[in-house]
Amino acid sequence: MNWLFGRPHKLAQSSLAGAPRARAGATFAARLTFDAVEKRYDERVAVRGFSLDVAPGEIVCLLGPSGCGKTTLLRLAAGIERPTGGRILVNEREVAGPQRFVQPEDRGVGLMFQDFALFPHLTIVDNVAFGLKALTREGARREALLMLSRVGLERYADAYPHILSGGQQQRVALARAIVPRPAVMLMDEPFSGLDVQLRDAMQEETLALLRETRATTMIVTHHPEEAMRLGDRIVVMRAGALVQSGRAEELYRQPASLFVARLFSEINEIEVTVANGHIATPIGRLAAPGIADGAAATLCIRERGVGLLSAGGNGSADVPGIRGRVRSAKFLGDAVRYEVVAEGFDAPLNVRTVAGEALGEGREVRLAIDSAEALIFPSNGDKSP
């Protein structure tokens, strides 16, 4: 469902008749700070030692598998849940901590969940106006109509939610969450119920609206591509804890762990042993800093980081690269995923290339692998995604 917290700010009146989409009014963005926050449910720890500072107007995506504590963190920020330990601050003002707890409606925070939860017995405009309790009925309707105009649905103002498509319902839910002008906007997987094409369009629409309102925003997702598209910064969570945070390119190119690498890339994982600070591989001798001699390590090669060239029917030596043979090829629309038996590797490598004329099963190929793109992590036997 959608929870609307915070006190609305008046907007300038304007006529909607025949007008283009209105722009959403800006809010006063707030700094959101988590200071060693913990949340326990009996013996289960949902959030552990979580610290993060979200700058005013910043859009942060919380990324991680189901059950890692992302939604719990949003509920703590909104005031639906009380933290077991640590503090939460909005603009340096403590809203949750050992000695203080500010009620949700006094935090200036909006929370939007994935199922939209529009009230079926209320018209679209009344759904949007639902959180504007501080205004008169006429004032609330005027503000709701302005926001509906912004999301392109003013013509449905007096209709009921059941006539709307999934994407239209998502727009109404977003309008209802934004119209009180919350200083902090919290969104829990808002696009998960939409099909792929509609999801892309709604992500762009939502991002534009958030930029206009300049609300500080946290968006929960378990889709890395969605996080990279929407977030100024991405925060990766696992088992209730913060694993790594940074810009999308940083997390992709310098993942802090094998877990993060798996989130952002399809990778081949090759188990190796460290000797004299290095590992010996078919693509050369690579440094393995921070891993003890004799310890097991995991060499990661991105599927999209392998170049594939046909070597002709006889595997001609004048084509550079590691010799290999195509074991299978799968057409995936804009890409082809190959399974290639490669010289020096105990197991076949998976390779993704831009779609073109597919190399058939049994074709002799050469693989070009840039050692600078290889990632090396300590092995811990963890095969979970």
Rank of each mutant, 00 (worst) to 15 (best):
D318V: 09
R304W: 01
C300Y: 04
E361P: 01
T353R: 15
R302C: 00
L375K: 12
A368D: 12
G294D: 14
D334T: 13
V319Y: 01
L349S: 14
C300Q: 13
G307P: 03
V351Y: 05
A311C: 05
L299R: 11
T298V: 15
G294M: 06
E364W: 00
G307T: 03
E364L: 11
A374D: 01
E361V: 13
A311E: 01
A374W: 00
V336K: 14
P348E: 00
I322R: 15
L375G: 02
A358V: 13
R366D: 00
V306K: 14
A368T: 14
D346P: 03
T298L: 15
G333R: 12
L299Y: 02
N380D: 13
A347M: 12
A355E: 06
L375C: 01
G313C: 04
R352T: 11
Y338V: 08
R337H: 07
N314Q: 13
G360A: 15
E303V: 01
G312K: 15
V354C: 03
A296C: 06
G313D: 04
E373L: 14
D318S: 13
S328Q: 11
V341F: 04
R363P: 00
D334K: 15
L359T: 05
A368P: 05
R352W: 03
L332I: 05
V365W: 01
V340Q: 11
I322A: 10
S316F: 04
L308P: 00
V336P: 04
A329D: 00
A368E: 12
D370V: 01
V351M: 05
A342N: 14
F331D: 09
Y338I: 10
A317E: 12
D293S: 10
L308K: 08
G313M: 06
G362T: 10
V326H: 03
A347R: 15
R323E: 02
R363H: 07
S371F: 01
T298F: 01
A372S: 13
R304V: 00
L359F: 06
P348A: 10
I322S: 10
A358G: 02
A295C: 08
L349V: 10
E357T: 14
T298G: 07
R325I: 11
N314W: 02
F377K: 14
I322M: 15
F377G: 12
T353A: 13
R337V: 03
L299C: 07
G344V: 09
R337G: 00
E373M: 10
G307A: 04
V319I: 14
N350L: 10
I322F: 07
L367C: 08
G307C: 05
L359D: 08
A297W: 05
G313T: 10
G313V: 08
L359S: 04
V365C: 05
V365T: 06
V306G: 06
R304H: 03
P378V: 12
F331C: 04
N350E: 08
I322G: 10
D346F: 03
V351N: 08
R363K: 14
I369N: 09
S371Q: 11
R337M: 09
R323Q: 11
N350I: 04
D334E: 13
V336Y: 05
V341D: 15
A317P: 08
